[in-house]
Design a protein around this nucleic acid. Structure first.
Length: 540
DNA sequence: GGGCAAATACTG
DNA sequence: CAGTAT
DNA sequence: GCCC
């Protein structure tokens, strides 16, 4: 087994790489350097988040990290192919400053306890490690805090908007919602240390999701299958009998039978049947191209184009967006290692700060990156300024990114003029989609950049951090309470088309400065981004 | 049998 | 406006 | 496809 690790840092990257390398060598660990994965080999990703960390590692963090690596290495037979741990440096520092509950002496023993804690998390227990050893509760909390809390409380230090924009009224009382059971967003997630113990089942279901993905109808059937996969992925035990899942939400009679079949035979007949159609295979292949959806794929198929390979011979059938999608198809399909996602986000951020040196800017790389995942499909960067005079034109930033040879192609042309949204407000949201490549890198990546007005930013953060189940669940919850929530804010749901503008323009003194404000206001517990891998985790 | 999240932006 | 995408 |  190889340990692949990468180090995410700003100005200290080289230092941390050297440190981590040295440590692994001292442990006689076969390591694969930064950001390397060895195909076919179980590999472990230890991401050491060094954002804003001071130069040099704090001692307690070193010990914890070291113990974690030792643990991982000793766990060679372990099934998970990917483990991630996140260390929150600022929190460490704060604890040090304010006095960690354990005190100085305890820090030295943190290694063993941390190991036990990781073991506990993997085994699904909540207070004892796999071997039954109790973990000191104060240390337990501290470990959870290390990994689950901290950094993403968001924009507390960032100047708030001056103009409140939300017409909704806060919850009068903090009710206890028994109905929470059904909401994915209420289930506390866990860290990315969560492995998929049910690949044997998720692999069997994936073809069904893929199949319903390529048509426009049957959206809900697709969603249901997708939910099943994410539910299975979230379980902390390996399913050996369908009966174990009988009581789970989302497992109905059909799916139950399929799980049963998959466990007995190793596959789902239905999933095999649907892919026997050549047409389905063709449609799926054509839709790999950005800009080609169900309808276009069907048209192309009618014209005799049956694959991407054949499409390359008939580029005259494509529009400008689809042409770019085709050109960069092979690159775009590749997953982006976490370190590179971070570097791309940083490139955009650095460019923006250099372009607008006098602006206070908040810049966040969202998506699965922000949820702590070790790889991403694309990079999603959103920005805001506290300046109500308006965000500077996103087009200027894109032009600068072009000038720096960072952007290779545009999928959209950002416009200066800003349309009026349904609430009758000028939507100062600006969006861009394109293809980028870091200097010195080989592979092109999908990049989205968005500029949001300050008062919408917490909602934008929520939306673009996801995941999809989390968003839908949270919005469903808001809706049942009479609100309608989007990436721009929260509004009254009962509002009629005609009265939309009037109501929405009635300002209420409701400020949402951070994501946490939104959680608080709706009346449910804050979820750190890494806890929003809903159905990446469920609780018993 | 209805609901399942939600609204905007771009292309042609 | 339909289709695609976020 | 599942839930109420």
């Amino acid at each position: 087994m190889k340990v692949a690790f990468f180090v995410q840092g700003r100005d200290v990257t080289a230092k941390y790489v050297a440190l981590a390398t040295k440590r692994l060598e001292a442990l006689e660990v076969d390591h694969a350097g930064t950001n390397v994965s060895a195909p076919g080999v179980t590999h472990v990703v230890a991401s050491l988040f060094a954002r804003e960390a001071p130069v040099g590692l704090d001692k307690d963090v070193q010990i914890v990290t070291l113990a974690w690596l030792q643990y991982v290495v000793s766990k060679q037979g372990h099934e998970p192919s990917e483990l991630t741990a996140e260390m929150d440096w600022r929190r460490c520092k704060a604890m040090q400053r304010n006095g960690a509950p354990d005190g100085e002496g305890q820090v030295k023993s943190a290694g063993a306890d941390f190991q036990a804690w990781v073991e506990m998390r993997l085994s699904g227990n909540t207070s004892t490690s796999a071997d039954g050893r109790r973990i000191p509760s104060r240390y337990l909390q501290r470990c959870n805090a290390f990994v689950l809390r901290g950094k993403y409380l968001g924009l507390a230090d960032f100047p708030p908007s001056e103009i409140p924009r939300h017409d909704a009224q806060p919850s009068k009382k903090r009710k206890r919602y028994d109905a929470h059971q059904g909401y994915a967003c209420f289930k506390s997630g866990t860290i990315a240390v969560q492995p998929n113990l049910n690949e044997h089942l998720t692999n069997a279901f994936q073809p069904l999701v893929d199949y319903y993905e390529i048509f426009n109808d049957e959206e809900w059937r697709k969603v249901s299958f997708k939910r099943v996969i994410d539910l299975l992925r979230s379980l902390k035990f390996k399913v050996t009998s369908a009966d174990q899942l009988r009581s789970y939400r989302g497992i109905g009679p059909k799916v139950f039978a399929m799980i049963d079949e998959a466990l007995r035979t190793g596959y789902i007949t239905r999933a095999k049947e649907v892919w026997k159609s050549d047409a389905a295979v063709s449609l799926r292949d054509l839709q790999r191209v950005h800009g080609i959806g169900a309808t276009v794929a069907r048209d192309l198929h009618k014209r005799g184009i049956r694959s991407v390979a054949e499409l390359r011979e008939h580029k005259e059938l494509l529009n400008s967006v689809q042409l770019i999608g085709l050109e960069y198809l092979d690159d775009i399909e590749q997953r982006i290692p976490r370190a590179e996602t971070g570097a791309i986000g940083k490139f955009v951020e650095d460019t923006a700060r250099a372009l607008w040196p006098s602006k206070a800017l908040a810049v966040e790389t969202c998506g699965s990156y922000r949820r702590g995942k070790s790889s991403s499909g694309d990079v999603d960067v959103i920005l805001t300024t506290p300046d109500q005079a308006g965000c500077p034109p996103l087009a200027d930033l894109i032009a600068e990114l072009h000038a720096r040879k960072f952007i290779a192609a545009d999928l959209t042309q950002p416009k200066d003029q800003l349309p009026v949204n349904r609430q009758g407000q000028v939507a100062r949201k600006q969006t861009y989609m394109g293809i980028c490549k870091l200097p010195g890198y080989k592979v092109h990546r999908r990049l989205d950049v968005k500029f949001y007005p300050r008062e919408q930013f917490p909602f934008a953060l929520l939306y673009f951090t996801g995941n999809d189940h989390f968003n839908r669940s949270m919005r469903n919850f808001a809706k049942r309470k009479g609100w309608s929530m989007s990436d721009e804010g929260i509004f009254s749901a009962q509002r009629q088309r005609s009265e939309r503008i009037a109501k929405a323009s009635r300002p209420v003194d409701t400020h949402f400065r951070t994501e946490k404000d939104v959680f608080d206001w709706l009346g449910f517990p804050y979820k750190h981004p890494t806890e929003r891998n809903c159905y990446d985790v469920t609780f018993a």
